[in-house]
Design a protein around this nucleic acid. Structure first.
Lengths: 230, 230
DNA sequence: CCGTGAATGTGAAGGCCTTCACGGTGACAA
DNA sequence: TTGTCACCGTGAAGGCCTTCACATTCACGG
Protein backbone atom coordinates (compact mmCIF):
# COMPACT_ATOMS: atom_id res chain seq x y z
CA UNK A 1 0.00 0.00 0.00
CA UNK A 2 1.63 3.26 -1.06
CA UNK A 3 1.21 6.61 0.57
CA UNK A 4 -1.28 7.94 -1.91
CA UNK A 5 -3.38 4.84 -1.72
CA UNK A 6 -3.45 4.98 2.07
CA UNK A 7 -4.48 8.59 2.16
CA UNK A 8 -7.22 7.90 -0.32
CA UNK A 9 -8.40 4.70 1.32
CA UNK A 10 -8.65 6.06 4.79
CA UNK A 11 -12.12 7.25 5.63
CA UNK A 12 -10.80 10.55 6.88
CA UNK A 13 -9.66 11.67 3.50
CA UNK A 14 -11.96 9.71 1.24
CA UNK A 15 -13.95 12.80 0.35
CA UNK A 16 -10.98 14.72 -0.99
CA UNK A 17 -10.29 15.56 -4.59
CA UNK A 18 -7.12 14.70 -6.49
CA UNK A 19 -5.50 18.05 -6.01
CA UNK A 20 -6.11 18.26 -2.30
CA UNK A 21 -4.83 14.75 -1.83
CA UNK A 22 -1.61 15.67 -3.58
CA UNK A 23 -1.24 18.73 -1.46
CA UNK A 24 -1.64 16.77 1.74
CA UNK A 25 0.66 14.07 0.48
CA UNK A 26 3.48 16.54 0.17
CA UNK A 27 3.28 17.24 3.87
CA UNK A 28 3.74 13.60 4.82
CA UNK A 29 6.90 11.64 5.44
CA UNK A 30 7.52 7.94 5.79
CA UNK A 31 8.86 6.16 8.83
CA UNK A 32 10.11 2.61 9.12
CA UNK A 33 10.01 0.50 12.27
CA UNK A 34 11.86 -2.70 13.04
CA UNK A 35 10.06 -5.53 14.83
CA UNK A 36 9.53 -4.61 18.51
CA UNK A 37 10.60 -1.03 17.89
CA UNK A 38 8.70 1.54 19.96
CA UNK A 39 6.97 4.31 18.02
CA UNK A 40 6.02 6.23 21.13
CA UNK A 41 5.14 5.59 24.75
CA UNK A 42 2.19 6.55 26.88
CA UNK A 43 3.01 9.92 28.41
CA UNK A 44 5.11 11.23 25.54
CA UNK A 45 4.07 14.51 23.95
CA UNK A 46 2.30 13.80 20.68
CA UNK A 47 2.38 15.92 17.57
CA UNK A 48 2.15 13.41 14.79
CA UNK A 49 -0.65 11.50 13.17
CA UNK A 50 0.28 8.12 11.71
CA UNK A 51 -1.16 5.82 9.08
CA UNK A 52 -0.02 2.23 8.66
CA UNK A 53 1.29 1.54 5.17
CA UNK A 54 2.50 -2.01 5.71
CA UNK A 55 3.23 -4.32 8.62
CA UNK A 56 1.40 -4.10 11.92
CA UNK A 57 1.67 -2.52 15.34
CA UNK A 58 0.15 -3.03 18.75
CA UNK A 59 -1.40 -0.37 20.95
CA UNK A 60 -1.05 -0.99 24.67
CA UNK A 61 -0.30 0.41 28.08
CA UNK A 62 1.74 -1.13 30.85
CA UNK A 63 0.04 -0.96 34.23
CA UNK A 64 1.94 0.03 37.35
CA UNK A 65 2.12 -3.64 38.34
CA UNK A 66 3.84 -4.52 35.07
CA UNK A 67 0.81 -6.11 33.48
CA UNK A 68 0.11 -5.02 29.92
CA UNK A 69 -3.31 -4.02 28.69
CA UNK A 70 -3.55 -4.22 24.94
CA UNK A 71 -6.12 -2.12 23.15
CA UNK A 72 -5.64 -3.55 19.73
CA UNK A 73 -3.61 -4.45 16.71
CA UNK A 74 -3.55 -2.19 13.69
CA UNK A 75 -2.63 -2.95 10.12
CA UNK A 76 -2.46 -1.29 6.70
CA UNK A 77 -4.99 1.47 6.12
CA UNK A 78 -5.52 2.23 9.78
CA UNK A 79 -4.88 5.56 11.45
CA UNK A 80 -3.43 6.13 14.89
CA UNK A 81 -2.22 8.90 17.11
CA UNK A 82 -5.24 11.17 16.68
CA UNK A 83 -6.14 11.40 20.35
CA UNK A 84 -3.11 13.27 21.62
CA UNK A 85 -3.21 15.38 18.52
CA UNK A 86 -6.74 16.55 19.07
CA UNK A 87 -6.73 17.31 22.75
CA UNK A 88 -3.06 18.29 22.97
CA UNK A 89 -2.45 16.00 25.90
CA UNK A 90 0.13 13.28 26.37
CA UNK A 91 -0.07 10.13 24.32
CA UNK A 92 -2.72 7.95 25.90
CA UNK A 93 -1.06 4.63 25.06
CA UNK A 94 2.17 3.14 23.76
CA UNK A 95 2.65 1.83 20.25
CA UNK A 96 5.08 -0.94 19.33
CA UNK A 97 5.75 -2.57 15.99
CA UNK A 98 4.94 -6.27 15.80
CA UNK A 99 6.87 -6.83 12.59
CA UNK A 100 8.77 -4.59 10.19
CA UNK A 101 6.36 -1.74 9.58
CA UNK A 102 6.11 1.29 7.36
CA UNK A 103 4.20 4.32 8.51
CA UNK A 104 3.08 7.53 6.96
CA UNK A 105 3.43 10.51 9.30
CA UNK A 106 1.76 13.88 9.29
CA UNK A 107 2.67 16.66 11.69
CA UNK A 108 0.11 18.65 13.66
CA UNK A 109 1.26 21.94 12.15
CA UNK A 110 0.31 20.60 8.73
CA UNK A 111 -2.79 18.71 9.75
CA UNK A 112 -4.69 21.29 11.78
CA UNK A 113 -4.62 24.04 9.15
CA UNK A 114 -5.62 21.45 6.62
CA UNK A 115 -8.58 20.31 8.71
CA UNK A 116 -9.68 23.90 9.09
CA UNK A 117 -9.84 24.18 5.34
CA UNK A 118 -11.52 20.83 4.79
CA UNK A 119 -14.50 20.28 7.08
CA UNK A 120 -15.40 17.04 5.34
CA UNK A 121 -12.08 15.58 6.33
CA UNK A 122 -12.59 16.73 9.90
CA UNK A 123 -15.99 15.08 10.04
CA UNK A 124 -14.32 11.94 8.74
CA UNK A 125 -11.77 12.10 11.49
CA UNK A 126 -14.54 12.52 14.04
CA UNK A 127 -16.08 9.39 12.56
CA UNK A 128 -12.87 7.44 13.23
CA UNK A 129 -13.01 8.60 16.82
CA UNK A 130 -16.65 7.68 17.13
CA UNK A 131 -15.82 4.17 15.98
CA UNK A 132 -13.02 4.04 18.54
CA UNK A 133 -15.42 4.97 21.33
CA UNK A 134 -17.87 2.37 20.15
CA UNK A 135 -15.29 -0.38 20.20
CA UNK A 136 -14.00 0.57 23.62
CA UNK A 137 -17.49 0.68 25.13
CA UNK A 138 -18.36 -2.67 23.69
CA UNK A 139 -15.23 -4.19 25.14
CA UNK A 140 -15.90 -2.64 28.51
CA UNK A 141 -19.36 -4.15 28.44
CA UNK A 142 -18.08 -7.55 27.39
CA UNK A 143 -15.49 -7.67 30.09
CA UNK A 144 -18.14 -7.01 32.65
CA UNK A 145 -20.89 -9.32 31.50
CA UNK A 146 -19.30 -12.11 29.49
CA UNK A 147 -17.46 -15.05 31.05
CA UNK A 148 -13.85 -15.58 30.04
CA UNK A 149 -14.34 -18.27 27.37
CA UNK A 150 -16.82 -16.08 25.55
CA UNK A 151 -14.45 -13.15 25.61
CA UNK A 152 -11.59 -15.22 24.23
CA UNK A 153 -13.81 -16.65 21.50
CA UNK A 154 -15.11 -13.24 20.53
CA UNK A 155 -11.68 -11.70 20.34
CA UNK A 156 -10.36 -14.62 18.36
CA UNK A 157 -13.11 -14.19 15.79
CA UNK A 158 -12.49 -10.46 15.61
CA UNK A 159 -8.78 -11.06 15.10
CA UNK A 160 -9.42 -13.61 12.40
CA UNK A 161 -11.58 -11.13 10.53
CA UNK A 162 -9.12 -8.30 10.90
CA UNK A 163 -5.75 -10.00 10.52
CA UNK A 164 -6.49 -13.62 9.67
CA UNK A 165 -4.53 -15.40 6.92
CA UNK A 166 -5.94 -18.26 4.93
CA UNK A 167 -3.13 -20.64 3.88
CA UNK A 168 -5.54 -22.64 1.75
CA UNK A 169 -8.21 -20.70 -0.08
CA UNK A 170 -11.55 -21.36 1.55
CA UNK A 171 -9.76 -23.28 4.30
CA UNK A 172 -9.37 -22.53 7.99
CA UNK A 173 -8.21 -19.10 9.12
CA UNK A 174 -4.93 -18.62 10.90
CA UNK A 175 -4.36 -15.90 13.50
CA UNK A 176 -0.73 -15.07 14.25
CA UNK A 177 -0.46 -13.94 17.84
CA UNK A 178 1.29 -15.30 20.93
CA UNK A 179 -1.02 -16.43 23.71
CA UNK A 180 0.39 -13.80 26.00
CA UNK A 181 -0.81 -11.07 23.66
CA UNK A 182 -4.22 -12.64 23.37
CA UNK A 183 -4.37 -12.64 27.15
CA UNK A 184 -3.47 -8.96 27.30
CA UNK A 185 -6.18 -8.18 24.77
CA UNK A 186 -8.84 -10.04 26.68
CA UNK A 187 -7.73 -9.01 30.12
CA UNK A 188 -6.61 -12.29 31.60
CA UNK A 189 -3.49 -14.38 32.10
CA UNK A 190 -1.55 -16.39 29.57
CA UNK A 191 -2.25 -19.54 31.57
CA UNK A 192 -6.00 -19.09 31.39
CA UNK A 193 -5.85 -18.48 27.66
CA UNK A 194 -3.69 -21.53 27.18
CA UNK A 195 -6.00 -23.81 29.11
CA UNK A 196 -9.04 -22.62 27.24
CA UNK A 197 -7.37 -22.95 23.85
CA UNK A 198 -6.18 -26.46 24.65
CA UNK A 199 -9.69 -27.43 25.66
CA UNK A 200 -10.93 -26.15 22.32
CA UNK A 201 -8.16 -27.95 20.53
CA UNK A 202 -9.24 -31.13 22.27
CA UNK A 203 -12.74 -30.48 21.00
CA UNK A 204 -11.53 -29.87 17.47
CA UNK A 205 -12.50 -26.20 17.31
CA UNK A 206 -9.00 -24.86 16.84
CA UNK A 207 -5.45 -25.98 16.20
CA UNK A 208 -2.51 -24.51 18.06
CA UNK A 209 0.99 -23.74 16.99
CA UNK A 210 3.81 -21.58 18.21
CA UNK A 211 2.57 -18.02 17.94
CA UNK A 212 -0.58 -18.92 16.09
CA UNK A 213 -4.12 -20.22 16.40
CA UNK A 214 -5.90 -21.85 13.49
CA UNK A 215 -9.65 -21.58 13.68
CA UNK A 216 -11.24 -24.71 12.32
CA UNK A 217 -14.83 -24.19 13.37
CA UNK A 218 -15.65 -20.50 13.58
CA UNK A 219 -19.38 -21.15 14.03
CA UNK A 220 -18.66 -23.12 17.17
CA UNK A 221 -16.67 -20.23 18.61
CA UNK A 222 -19.42 -17.86 17.61
CA UNK A 223 -21.89 -20.01 19.52
CA UNK A 224 -19.78 -19.79 22.66
CA UNK A 225 -19.93 -16.04 22.29
CA UNK A 226 -23.70 -16.03 22.19
CA UNK A 227 -24.78 -18.62 24.67
CA UNK A 228 -23.38 -18.77 28.13
CA UNK A 229 -22.28 -22.38 27.96
CA UNK A 230 -18.89 -23.46 29.14
CA UNK B 1 -28.01 27.26 32.60
CA UNK B 2 -29.92 28.59 29.60
CA UNK B 3 -29.58 27.40 26.07
CA UNK B 4 -27.35 30.18 24.91
CA UNK B 5 -25.05 29.76 27.86
CA UNK B 6 -24.77 26.04 27.25
CA UNK B 7 -23.95 26.43 23.61
CA UNK B 8 -21.31 28.97 24.47
CA UNK B 9 -19.88 27.02 27.38
CA UNK B 10 -19.52 23.77 25.55
CA UNK B 11 -16.08 23.32 24.12
CA UNK B 12 -17.47 22.40 20.74
CA UNK B 13 -18.87 25.82 20.12
CA UNK B 14 -16.61 27.96 22.21
CA UNK B 15 -14.88 29.38 19.17
CA UNK B 16 -18.04 30.74 17.59
CA UNK B 17 -18.99 34.37 17.26
CA UNK B 18 -22.23 35.93 18.50
CA UNK B 19 -24.02 35.75 15.22
CA UNK B 20 -23.19 32.14 14.52
CA UNK B 21 -24.21 31.15 17.99
CA UNK B 22 -27.60 32.77 17.49
CA UNK B 23 -28.03 31.01 14.21
CA UNK B 24 -27.31 27.63 15.71
CA UNK B 25 -29.52 28.38 18.67
CA UNK B 26 -32.51 28.79 16.41
CA UNK B 27 -32.11 25.22 15.22
CA UNK B 28 -32.29 23.80 18.76
CA UNK B 29 -35.27 22.75 20.80
CA UNK B 30 -35.63 21.94 24.47
CA UNK B 31 -36.68 18.62 25.93
CA UNK B 32 -37.65 17.82 29.49
CA UNK B 33 -37.23 14.46 31.18
CA UNK B 34 -38.81 13.19 34.37
CA UNK B 35 -36.74 11.20 36.85
CA UNK B 36 -36.02 7.73 35.44
CA UNK B 37 -37.38 8.66 32.05
CA UNK B 38 -35.52 7.05 29.14
CA UNK B 39 -34.09 9.43 26.53
CA UNK B 40 -33.06 6.61 24.21
CA UNK B 41 -31.91 3.02 24.35
CA UNK B 42 -28.91 1.23 22.96
CA UNK B 43 -29.84 0.06 19.49
CA UNK B 44 -32.21 2.92 18.66
CA UNK B 45 -31.46 4.93 15.55
CA UNK B 46 -29.88 8.23 16.55
CA UNK B 47 -30.27 11.55 14.82
CA UNK B 48 -30.08 14.03 17.66
CA UNK B 49 -27.26 15.60 19.58
CA UNK B 50 -28.05 16.57 23.15
CA UNK B 51 -26.65 19.00 25.67
CA UNK B 52 -27.58 18.93 29.35
CA UNK B 53 -29.05 22.23 30.53
CA UNK B 54 -30.00 21.17 34.06
CA UNK B 55 -30.39 17.97 36.03
CA UNK B 56 -28.38 14.86 35.30
CA UNK B 57 -28.52 11.64 33.32
CA UNK B 58 -26.76 8.30 33.33
CA UNK B 59 -25.25 6.53 30.34
CA UNK B 60 -25.33 2.76 30.52
CA UNK B 61 -25.95 -0.50 28.77
CA UNK B 62 -27.71 -3.57 30.08
CA UNK B 63 -25.83 -6.79 29.39
CA UNK B 64 -27.60 -9.89 28.14
CA UNK B 65 -27.45 -11.29 31.67
CA UNK B 66 -29.32 -8.30 33.04
CA UNK B 67 -26.29 -6.70 34.62
CA UNK B 68 -25.89 -2.98 33.95
CA UNK B 69 -22.63 -1.42 32.90
CA UNK B 70 -22.61 2.29 33.57
CA UNK B 71 -20.31 4.48 31.53
CA UNK B 72 -20.89 7.68 33.39
CA UNK B 73 -23.06 10.42 34.78
CA UNK B 74 -23.47 13.67 32.91
CA UNK B 75 -24.56 17.06 34.16
CA UNK B 76 -25.05 20.64 32.95
CA UNK B 77 -22.74 21.70 30.13
CA UNK B 78 -22.02 18.20 28.90
CA UNK B 79 -22.78 16.89 25.44
CA UNK B 80 -24.05 13.45 24.53
CA UNK B 81 -25.29 11.49 21.58
CA UNK B 82 -22.44 12.39 19.23
CA UNK B 83 -21.34 8.85 18.50
CA UNK B 84 -24.40 7.60 16.67
CA UNK B 85 -24.62 10.94 14.94
CA UNK B 86 -21.13 10.78 13.54
CA UNK B 87 -20.98 7.22 12.32
CA UNK B 88 -24.68 6.86 11.52
CA UNK B 89 -24.95 3.64 13.47
CA UNK B 90 -27.30 2.67 16.25
CA UNK B 91 -27.05 4.35 19.62
CA UNK B 92 -24.17 2.72 21.43
CA UNK B 93 -25.65 3.03 24.92
CA UNK B 94 -28.86 3.92 26.72
CA UNK B 95 -29.48 7.22 28.48
CA UNK B 96 -31.79 7.62 31.47
CA UNK B 97 -32.57 10.71 33.53
CA UNK B 98 -31.51 10.50 37.16
CA UNK B 99 -33.59 13.48 38.22
CA UNK B 100 -35.78 16.01 36.40
CA UNK B 101 -33.60 17.11 33.52
CA UNK B 102 -33.70 19.68 30.78
CA UNK B 103 -31.92 19.04 27.52
CA UNK B 104 -31.10 21.02 24.45
CA UNK B 105 -31.50 19.04 21.26
CA UNK B 106 -30.04 19.54 17.83
CA UNK B 107 -30.97 17.44 14.83
CA UNK B 108 -28.43 15.91 12.48
CA UNK B 109 -29.85 17.73 9.45
CA UNK B 110 -29.06 21.03 11.16
CA UNK B 111 -25.78 20.00 12.73
CA UNK B 112 -23.93 18.43 9.82
CA UNK B 113 -24.32 21.37 7.43
CA UNK B 114 -23.34 23.64 10.27
CA UNK B 115 -20.19 21.63 10.97
CA UNK B 116 -19.30 21.77 7.32
CA UNK B 117 -19.37 25.54 7.48
CA UNK B 118 -17.52 25.80 10.79
CA UNK B 119 -14.39 23.66 10.87
CA UNK B 120 -13.39 25.05 14.26
CA UNK B 121 -16.55 23.66 15.77
CA UNK B 122 -15.89 20.31 14.15
CA UNK B 123 -12.40 20.19 15.57
CA UNK B 124 -13.92 21.00 18.94
CA UNK B 125 -16.32 18.11 18.57
CA UNK B 126 -13.43 15.82 17.69
CA UNK B 127 -11.78 17.00 20.89
CA UNK B 128 -14.81 15.90 22.92
CA UNK B 129 -14.53 12.49 21.31
CA UNK B 130 -10.81 12.31 21.98
CA UNK B 131 -11.49 12.98 25.65
CA UNK B 132 -14.11 10.24 25.62
CA UNK B 133 -11.61 7.75 24.21
CA UNK B 134 -9.06 8.78 26.79
CA UNK B 135 -11.46 8.23 29.67
CA UNK B 136 -12.58 4.86 28.37
CA UNK B 137 -9.02 3.62 27.88
CA UNK B 138 -8.02 4.70 31.31
CA UNK B 139 -10.95 2.89 32.84
CA UNK B 140 -10.19 -0.23 30.86
CA UNK B 141 -6.65 -0.12 32.14
CA UNK B 142 -7.75 0.45 35.73
CA UNK B 143 -10.18 -2.42 35.69
CA UNK B 144 -7.43 -4.70 34.55
CA UNK B 145 -4.59 -3.66 36.81
CA UNK B 146 -6.09 -2.09 39.91
CA UNK B 147 -7.65 -4.10 42.75
CA UNK B 148 -11.27 -3.41 43.61
CA UNK B 149 -10.77 -1.04 46.56
CA UNK B 150 -8.56 1.19 44.46
CA UNK B 151 -11.11 1.30 41.69
CA UNK B 152 -13.90 2.23 44.07
CA UNK B 153 -11.77 4.92 45.68
CA UNK B 154 -10.77 6.38 42.36
CA UNK B 155 -14.29 6.52 41.04
CA UNK B 156 -15.53 8.05 44.26
CA UNK B 157 -12.99 10.83 43.98
CA UNK B 158 -13.86 11.41 40.32
CA UNK B 159 -17.54 11.58 41.21
CA UNK B 160 -16.91 14.01 44.02
CA UNK B 161 -15.04 16.30 41.66
CA UNK B 162 -17.65 16.10 38.97
CA UNK B 163 -20.92 16.04 40.90
CA UNK B 164 -20.01 16.52 44.54
CA UNK B 165 -22.02 18.88 46.76
CA UNK B 166 -20.51 20.61 49.75
CA UNK B 167 -23.22 21.18 52.37
CA UNK B 168 -20.84 23.23 54.49
CA UNK B 169 -18.42 25.47 52.63
CA UNK B 170 -14.96 24.00 52.89
CA UNK B 171 -16.43 20.93 54.56
CA UNK B 172 -16.62 17.33 53.39
CA UNK B 173 -17.95 16.53 49.93
CA UNK B 174 -21.14 14.59 49.44
CA UNK B 175 -21.71 12.30 46.46
CA UNK B 176 -25.35 11.40 45.76
CA UNK B 177 -25.46 7.97 44.22
CA UNK B 178 -26.92 4.64 45.28
CA UNK B 179 -24.39 1.91 45.93
CA UNK B 180 -25.81 -0.17 43.11
CA UNK B 181 -24.95 2.56 40.64
CA UNK B 182 -21.47 2.90 42.04
CA UNK B 183 -21.09 -0.85 41.56
CA UNK B 184 -22.22 -0.61 37.94
CA UNK B 185 -19.72 2.17 37.33
CA UNK B 186 -16.83 0.25 38.80
CA UNK B 187 -17.80 -3.11 37.41
CA UNK B 188 -18.60 -5.05 40.54
CA UNK B 189 -21.54 -6.01 42.73
CA UNK B 190 -23.51 -3.87 45.15
CA UNK B 191 -22.47 -6.18 47.97
CA UNK B 192 -18.78 -5.69 47.33
CA UNK B 193 -19.19 -1.93 47.21
CA UNK B 194 -21.18 -1.97 50.40
CA UNK B 195 -18.62 -3.99 52.29
CA UNK B 196 -15.77 -1.78 51.17
CA UNK B 197 -17.61 1.42 52.01
CA UNK B 198 -18.52 0.12 55.45
CA UNK B 199 -14.91 -0.74 56.10
CA UNK B 200 -13.94 2.80 55.16
CA UNK B 201 -16.71 4.19 57.33
CA UNK B 202 -15.33 2.14 60.20
CA UNK B 203 -11.94 3.71 59.52
CA UNK B 204 -13.40 7.21 59.41
CA UNK B 205 -12.71 7.86 55.73
CA UNK B 206 -16.31 8.26 54.67
CA UNK B 207 -19.80 8.52 56.05
CA UNK B 208 -22.72 6.66 54.54
CA UNK B 209 -26.34 7.55 54.11
CA UNK B 210 -29.21 6.42 51.98
CA UNK B 211 -28.21 7.18 48.42
CA UNK B 212 -25.12 9.12 49.36
CA UNK B 213 -21.49 8.89 50.39
CA UNK B 214 -19.80 11.71 52.29
CA UNK B 215 -16.09 11.81 51.76
CA UNK B 216 -14.35 12.90 54.94
CA UNK B 217 -10.74 12.16 54.06
CA UNK B 218 -10.17 12.43 50.34
CA UNK B 219 -6.38 12.19 50.74
CA UNK B 220 -6.77 8.79 52.33
CA UNK B 221 -8.87 7.56 49.42
CA UNK B 222 -6.33 9.01 47.03
CA UNK B 223 -3.62 7.05 48.80
CA UNK B 224 -5.55 3.79 48.31
CA UNK B 225 -5.65 4.64 44.62
CA UNK B 226 -1.92 4.99 44.42
CA UNK B 227 -0.50 2.29 46.62
CA UNK B 228 -1.67 -1.26 46.45
CA UNK B 229 -2.52 -1.52 50.13
CA UNK B 230 -5.73 -2.98 51.40
C1' DC C 1 24.32 -27.31 14.45
C1' DC C 2 23.93 -26.15 18.83
C1' DG C 3 22.70 -23.07 22.71
C1' DT C 4 19.50 -20.03 24.65
C1' DG C 5 15.45 -17.62 25.19
C1' DA C 6 10.78 -16.97 24.07
C1' DA C 7 6.58 -19.33 23.94
C1' DT C 8 3.74 -23.20 25.27
C1' DG C 9 1.79 -26.79 28.46
C1' DT C 10 0.05 -28.15 33.15
C1' DG C 11 -1.06 -28.97 37.87
C1' DA C 12 -1.80 -27.40 42.70
C1' DA C 13 -3.18 -24.00 45.98
C1' DG C 14 -5.54 -20.38 47.27
C1' DG C 15 -7.77 -15.77 47.21
C1' DC C 16 -10.79 -12.35 45.78
C1' DC C 17 -15.10 -11.66 44.54
C1' DT C 18 -19.58 -13.22 43.30
C1' DT C 19 -23.74 -15.42 44.42
C1' DC C 20 -27.36 -16.35 47.41
C1' DA C 21 -30.23 -15.51 51.02
C1' DC C 22 -32.21 -12.74 54.09
C1' DG C 23 -33.16 -8.92 57.63
C1' DG C 24 -33.43 -4.06 58.33
C1' DT C 25 -34.78 0.88 57.43
C1' DG C 26 -35.79 5.09 55.70
C1' DA C 27 -38.40 7.92 52.10
C1' DC C 28 -42.36 8.84 49.75
C1' DA C 29 -47.07 8.37 48.19
C1' DA C 30 -51.80 7.24 49.11
C1' DT D 1 -50.21 7.33 59.13
C1' DT D 2 -49.14 3.47 57.21
C1' DG D 3 -47.73 0.51 53.41
C1' DT D 4 -44.58 -0.36 50.16
C1' DC D 5 -40.50 -0.24 47.66
C1' DA D 6 -35.90 0.88 46.94
C1' DC D 7 -31.85 0.86 49.12
C1' DC D 8 -28.65 -0.71 52.68
C1' DG D 9 -26.29 -4.30 55.67
C1' DT D 10 -24.15 -8.85 56.29
C1' DG D 11 -22.77 -13.65 56.57
C1' DA D 12 -21.85 -18.18 54.36
C1' DA D 13 -20.49 -20.95 50.54
C1' DG D 14 -18.27 -21.61 46.66
C1' DG D 15 -16.34 -20.83 42.03
C1' DC D 16 -13.60 -18.83 38.63
C1' DC D 17 -9.41 -17.25 37.85
C1' DT D 18 -4.91 -15.95 39.31
C1' DT D 19 -0.55 -17.08 41.07
C1' DC D 20 3.26 -19.99 41.39
C1' DA D 21 6.23 -23.36 39.98
C1' DC D 22 8.15 -26.08 36.71
C1' DA D 23 8.75 -29.05 32.51
C1' DT D 24 9.00 -28.80 27.38
C1' DT D 25 9.83 -27.38 22.85
C1' DC D 26 10.51 -24.92 19.07
C1' DA D 27 12.94 -20.78 16.38
C1' DC D 28 16.88 -18.54 15.34
C1' DG D 29 21.39 -16.25 15.91
C1' DG D 30 25.99 -17.18 16.14
Amino acid sequence: MDRRELLGSVSIFSSLGEKELDLLLQATTTKRLLPKEVLFRKGDPGNQLYGVLSGSIKVLTTGSDGKDVMFGLMGPGEVLGEIALLDSEERSASVIAVEATELLTLHRRELIPFLEKHPQATIGLAGVLAARVRKLSERAEDRQTMPLPGRIAKRLIALSEQHGKRPIVGGPVEVRLPQQDLADLVGTTRESVNKQLRAWEEAGLVELGRGRVVIKRPEALQAITETFEL
